[in-house]
Structure formats: structure tokens, C-alpha cells
Design a binder for these strands. Structure first.
Lengths: 100, 100
DNA sequence: TTTGCTATCTATAACTA
DNA sequence: TTAGTTATAGATAGCAA
């Protein structure tokens, strides 16, 4: 999306990598926020830079998202096996069946 | 980013909201993955749709990210506040001008 | 209904100061 | 170095099946 096309692989030059990180991080957080608002979804993003700084966005509280996530996992008992690929796991549940 | 510009507010029409959710969710997950690869960052995204489906991406394991997050919170207690760059907290109304 | 198309809008790679 | 500019690649809103 810029003057040239880039391959999706680790950027070798550290300065360039840092600049790209800053720009894309902002972009990602903005998109996350837009998705939450537009679609009435609960969205959470956590980013650790390679220099160990943390950046985050959560449409509600971090804790509640993580708890909701854990509850979901507890019921479904799988999922967390995400590799480095995009693992989009849909857990269809129309409501919150406590004792299914 | 499409045939017309839209305001960042909840989409009223449920069909349209569902379609937009599907498209933007994919976009967000793709961006998250790109950021992780390009910039050697650890990135996690959790999304709950308004119909309670969960979608997620994590560049490493979900558990390790959440643990790292908790450790970070525990140690520093400041997290994102130090960087005036990205002040995306769970306070929606403050930072969205939505200029006409 | 949902998927695919594409004109248009947005993010950003490379450049400049 | 980092911050600002801009041309281009990429995302997507509305439409068509």
C-alpha cells in the first residue's frame, strides 16, 4: 500500500522495521476500533513490539474479554492450538448455554 | 474504502452489518498477521461478533500472550499510558471526531 | 439469503526535510 | 534520527447475481 509492493516477510533493516511497526500498529488499532463500533462487536488487540513494549485496544475491558474468551474455551475445549497462521475458529453458539 | 464513504457508527441494517463484519474481520486478522511477520511482533486479536461467535488470531499461543500481558500489567502498571502516540483505551466517545 | 465484482476510499512504502 | 508528504497498493461499500 505504498510506493512499492512489499513481501510479507520480516523486514531486515531495523530502522525500516521500526517505522513500519509504528505505522501499521496504528492502522491495526484503528481498524479494530472501527470494527467494534460499526458491527457492534467486542474486539481486543494486544501487541508486543520486538522491543517489548505493549500496545493494546479493547472495546470493553481487557479482563472481561479474556474471561469471556476463557469461558468460551472452557466450553469448547479446543482452539488454542493456533499456529502462526490465521486460525479463525468460529464457535457457533446462539446464546450462552451454561450446561451444554 | 468502497463505493462510498461511511461514518464510523453502528450499522443499523443487520444484513449490512453482518456483511461488513465478515469483510472487516477478515481484513483485521490479515493485518494482524502481516504486522506480526513484518515487524517481528507478538500480536493477538480476539473478536466476538454480536451473535456471540468468536474469531481469533495469535502470532504465538493465546495462553502465552495472555500470560505475558498479565505479567506486564503486574510489573509496570502503566502499559500504554507512557506512549502518547496510541491512546486507545476503552473510552469510545473521547477520541472519535467523525468529522462531517 | 450469500458470494463475487469493482469503483472508490484508505493505509502505507518510499521519499523528503 | 524522526516526522511529514504523496503516489501507489490494498481494503472495502455498494451493487449484481
Amino acid at each position: 500500500m505504498g510506493r512499492g509492493k512489499i513481501a510479507i516477510k520480516r523486514i531486515d533493516d531495523s530502522t525500516n522495521r521500526q517505522v513500519t511497526f509504528s505505522k501499521r500498529r496504528n492502522g491495526l488499532l484503528k481498524k479494530a476500533k472501527e470494527l467494534a463500533i460499526l458491527c457492534d462487536a467486542e474486539v481486543q488487540v494486544i501487541i508486543f513490539s520486538s522491543t517489548n513494549k505493549i500496545y493494546e485496544y479493547s472495546s470493553s475491558s481487557m479482563t472481561s474479554v479474556i474471561q469471556r474468551y476463557n469461558r468460551c474455551k472452557d466450553e469448547k475445549d479446543q482452539v488454542v492450538n493456533s499456529t502462526s497462521d490465521v486460525k479463525v475458529r468460529a464457535v457457533p453458539s446462539a446464546s450462552f448455554p451454561s450446561g451444554t
